[in-house]
Amino acid sequence: MRNLILSAVLAGASLLGMTAVQADEIEAGKQYVELSSPVPVSVPGKIEVVELFWYGCPHCYQFEPTINPWSAKLPADVNFVRIPAMFGGLWNVHGQLFITLETMKVEQQVHKAVFDAIHKEGKKLATPEEMAEFLATQGVDKDAFLKTFNSFAVKGQMEKAKKLAMAYQITGVPTMVVNGKYRFDISSSGGPEQTLQVADHLIEKERAAK
């Protein structure tokens, strides 16, 4: 946990003094790491871009205004996936929250509101009951949420997310992975905008390799 928090702090420190990254400057070992064992993607045939995050991470929250408009404009051959990082305690609780919202197909509707509740309004959202009360203000049915939160399907997706995080060998959040092969973050890339430049570069790299 200490290393994860330190990684997040280092990532946040790089928000200052950012410089543009040229395509010919982006290479393995600098802005990104090439995984020794590629991880299968969730939709075969598409280039997958994964963002691993935690609702309680301030740097993930700060990354939202940068990554959201970018991900909304990705071409049809790119599949953007969010995966909650779960390393115990509140990380797992919030991961279960995210997966529940995805399962209910309301995640896009309330994703920003959940982040705002934690980082602007000081809510912990540490129990299913507290989550249900808050989500009811966003139009999510309480009983349906609680039933889904404790469902076998959600528990199964949590285990899958934990295994993916291990396979990606992440040490902090936010972290991105392109096509199960390349891992990078705000710190290694040089800032939020540069992170997406690295993502664009690796998407093109994978597209050219097809």
Rank of each mutant, 00 (worst) to 15 (best):
residue 104 M to R: 05
residue 104 M to D: 13
residue 105 K to Y: 06
residue 105 K to G: 13
residue 106 V to T: 12
residue 106 V to Y: 09
residue 107 E to S: 11
residue 107 E to T: 06
residue 108 Q to H: 03
residue 108 Q to Y: 01
residue 109 Q to K: 08
residue 109 Q to I: 10
residue 109 Q to P: 00
residue 110 V to W: 00
residue 113 A to Q: 08
residue 115 F to Y: 15
residue 118 I to Y: 06
residue 119 H to F: 08
residue 119 H to C: 09
residue 121 E to K: 01
residue 121 E to V: 03
residue 121 E to A: 06
residue 121 E to S: 12
residue 123 K to Q: 11
residue 123 K to D: 02
residue 123 K to L: 14
residue 123 K to F: 05
residue 123 K to E: 03
residue 124 K to T: 15
residue 124 K to W: 10
residue 125 L to K: 12
residue 126 A to Q: 01
residue 127 T to V: 09
residue 128 P to L: 01
residue 130 E to H: 03
residue 130 E to F: 03
residue 131 M to R: 00
residue 135 L to E: 04
residue 135 L to I: 05
residue 135 L to N: 12
residue 137 T to A: 01
residue 137 T to V: 04
residue 138 Q to Y: 01
residue 138 Q to L: 07
residue 139 G to T: 05
residue 140 V to W: 01
residue 141 D to Y: 10
residue 143 D to F: 04
residue 143 D to N: 15
residue 145 F to A: 14
residue 145 F to S: 15
residue 147 K to S: 15
residue 147 K to D: 14
residue 148 T to H: 07
residue 148 T to Y: 02
residue 149 F to K: 11
residue 149 F to Q: 05
residue 150 N to P: 09
residue 150 N to A: 15
residue 150 N to R: 10
residue 151 S to T: 08
residue 151 S to E: 06
residue 152 F to T: 13
residue 153 A to W: 00
residue 153 A to K: 05
residue 153 A to N: 00
residue 156 G to W: 00
residue 158 M to F: 07
residue 159 E to T: 11
residue 160 K to L: 05
residue 160 K to M: 04
residue 160 K to N: 11
residue 161 A to Y: 09
residue 163 K to Q: 15
residue 164 L to P: 00
residue 164 L to I: 06
residue 165 A to R: 00
residue 166 M to R: 04
residue 166 M to G: 12
residue 167 A to L: 07
residue 167 A to M: 03
residue 167 A to G: 13
residue 168 Y to H: 12
residue 168 Y to C: 09
residue 168 Y to V: 12
residue 168 Y to N: 11
residue 169 Q to Y: 07
residue 169 Q to G: 02
residue 169 Q to R: 09
residue 170 I to E: 01
residue 170 I to F: 06
residue 171 T to D: 05
